[in-house]
Simulated scan of single mutants.
Amino acid sequence: MGTVGTILYYIHWNPSVGIGPFRWYGLCWLIGFAVAYLLVQRLYREQKIKEELFEPLFLYCFLGILIGARLGHCIFYEPDYFLTSGKGIVEMFLPIRFLADGGWKFIGYEGLASHGGTLGLIIALWLYVRKTKLGIWTVLDNIAIATGSMACFIRLGNLMNSEIIGKVTDVPWAFIFERVDMMPRHPGQLYEAIAYAILFFLMWWLHKRKPEKIGTGWYFGFCLTYIFTFRFFIEYTKEIQEAFEASLPLDMGQILSIPFILLGVVCMFRKGQRR
């Protein structure tokens, strides 16, 4: 069968941009955050941690992830644009784009990097435990147990937006992202979403069987190791996001994943006691 005939069997992907004024990515991001929030709240209750110590967690996590993800994208993926002018620096923090005629328009945060979001979350949680006096490893482990759920929804948002697309392929489950081109490509966003859903169910099952490990850093380490090891290898199926990555031996996603993998392994095997 010829190429045209084969393409008919691929999944043609061109969903609506959202529901009313709400974009799919923003909706998926908020749903994932809300689900993770409720899961961590349940974990706090299981561990009999006071409700007033949980209440500020939402704000710390929200700001940490958003600011970290935004700065991560601007610094690691588009430094030539955002770090070379005053307007670029303003656009790093505000969801606007300056126009050639001197005006500006609201565009939302079009660039968010998961590595930056992870680093921002870790810093935010460090500030949170300084305020609440909770054990840092207990907080990190609780967040890690719920992380897979949010990560899954974020990648589903990328899929709905037809962004972070995969390389051209002839696998029978290839997606044709019609907003991009008419080439069959790996649905890398879907690969990641499935992997993160598996991570969540695995972590939830493990914490039920091994609750005594919460507070040792093991769950946090396992989460980092799982996510970023998978992220390292899945990058081989994805298109590079910025042109400069073509000259690198590894793409930026892989380079940034390595320190998180190493940190995860260290946390898993550290000889820490539950606090």
Score class of each variant (00 low, 15 high):
E52I: 07
P56D: 09
L119C: 07
L38K: 06
V171Q: 05
S149L: 07
L39F: 02
A34N: 03
P172N: 11
R270K: 15
G166I: 00
E91A: 02
F22R: 05
G111N: 04
F22Y: 15
K208C: 06
G64Q: 12
V139W: 00
H186F: 11
G166T: 00
F153T: 07
L263G: 13
K208G: 12
D141F: 01
L27G: 08
L59T: 13
G221T: 08
V265Q: 07
P79M: 06
F98L: 06
I123Q: 02
L121W: 08
W137M: 13
M182E: 11
I7T: 13
Y219K: 02
I136H: 07
G88F: 11
T132S: 02
K105R: 15
D251A: 14
G217D: 04
T225Y: 06
F177E: 05
F22N: 05
M203L: 14
Y25K: 06
L121Y: 09
I198Q: 09
L39H: 01
I154S: 01
I214H: 04
A100I: 08
T118L: 02
L53P: 00
Y60A: 10
V129Q: 10
F54R: 11
E55S: 11
C152N: 03
Y9H: 15
G253S: 15
A100E: 14
A197Q: 07
K210C: 10
K238M: 09
M160P: 03
G2D: 15
R231N: 08
I107S: 03
W29T: 13
Y60M: 09
I31F: 07
L206E: 11
E235Y: 03
D80R: 05
L119Y: 09
M150T: 10
W24K: 04
L8M: 14
I143K: 01
V180W: 09
G215E: 02
C74G: 04
T138A: 01
I123W: 03
K167H: 03
R23K: 15
G116A: 01
H12K: 12
I136V: 13
G68Y: 12
R42N: 05
G120Y: 05
D80P: 00
K87W: 11
V129T: 14
V17T: 10
I143N: 04
V90W: 11
H186C: 01
K48R: 06
S257F: 09
A36Y: 10
F33N: 09
E212F: 05
F22L: 15
L112K: 05
I164C: 01
I7K: 15
D251T: 15
F22W: 15
W126C: 02
V90T: 14
S149M: 10
Q189V: 12
I122E: 01
I198P: 10
T169L: 00
Q189H: 08
R270I: 13
Y10P: 01
G5S: 04
I31E: 03
M252K: 08
Q189G: 10
I165Q: 11
R155I: 04
P187M: 03
D170N: 14
E52G: 04
I123P: 04
E192W: 02
R231K: 10
R270G: 14
G26N: 12
A34D: 00
A193H: 08
S114Q: 02
A113W: 03
R231V: 08
Y236T: 04
I194A: 06
K271R: 15
A146L: 00
L134I: 03
N14P: 00
A113L: 06
F33A: 14
R130G: 14
I154V: 15
G215R: 02
W29D: 11
K210G: 04
L57F: 14
G272V: 10
L53Y: 04
